[in-house]
Simulated scan of single mutants.
Amino acid sequence: MPVRILSEAANSDEASADTVAPVEDVHQLRVSIPDIEPEVWRRIHVYSQTPLSGLHAVIQVAMGWDDAPEKSISRVP
């Protein structure tokens, strides 16, 4: 099942003078399943350095999926 991901920056460029460690960029993603009514979507936040495997895991949890192979149901006449 295809998943559509739209990205937008979730943090601002403003930094506090008290910051002692570099702040990693965080991105807000809108993940949706196309061609489904009503629309199914989730808003997630991930760090810039999140590997693709980590993004995969985050999407799985956000959508309530268990990383199982896609199942199909067919009607028997």
Rank of each mutant, 00 (worst) to 15 (best):
V58A: 06
W41A: 13
H45N: 09
P34F: 01
T50E: 06
D25A: 15
V61Y: 02
L55Y: 02
A57L: 06
D35I: 00
I59G: 04
M63G: 04
S12G: 12
S72G: 04
R42G: 02
D25L: 13
D35H: 13
A10L: 07
V61T: 05
I36Y: 07
D66A: 03
A68Y: 01
W65E: 00
A21Y: 13
D67W: 04
A21F: 12
A10R: 03
V58G: 01
R30E: 09
P2Q: 05
I33W: 05
V58M: 02
L29W: 12
P77S: 09
P51L: 10
M63V: 07
T50K: 00
A9P: 08
L52D: 11
A17S: 11
Y47I: 05
E8W: 03
M63Y: 04
S74L: 02
P77I: 14
T50I: 13
D18S: 10
P34N: 00
I73N: 02
G64M: 10
G54F: 02
K71R: 15
H56P: 00
K71L: 05
E24S: 15
E8N: 05
V3G: 07
P22F: 03
P34T: 05
L55P: 09
D25K: 14
M1C: 00
N11I: 15
E14G: 01
E37V: 14
H56N: 06
A15H: 12
V76R: 03
D35F: 09
I73G: 03
A57R: 06
L6V: 15
V26P: 01
V26W: 14
K71I: 04
V31I: 14
I33R: 05
A21W: 14
A17W: 13
A10I: 04
P77R: 07
E37Y: 08
I33P: 01
I59D: 04
P38V: 02
R43A: 05
R43K: 11
R43L: 09
S48K: 06
A10N: 02
D18C: 07
S12Q: 01
E14R: 15
A17D: 12
E8L: 04
W41V: 06
R75Q: 06
N11H: 05
D18K: 08
P69I: 12
E37A: 11
E39S: 03
P51C: 11
M63H: 10
L52R: 08
R75H: 08
W41R: 13
L29K: 07
A21N: 15
Q60Y: 08
R30I: 08
A10Q: 00
A62I: 07
N11M: 15
P77M: 11
P34I: 06
V40M: 09
S72Q: 10
R75S: 12
P38N: 00
E37P: 00
S7M: 07
R43W: 01
E70F: 00
V23Y: 00
P34Y: 01
P51S: 10
M1A: 15
N11E: 11
I33S: 02
L52A: 13
Q60M: 15
V20G: 09
P69H: 03
V20A: 13
I5M: 14
K71E: 13
A9C: 09
L52G: 10
E37D: 12
V20Y: 12
V58I: 14
V3W: 09
A9F: 11
P38W: 06
L6T: 12
R75T: 08
A21S: 14
E24I: 11
R42A: 06
A9I: 11
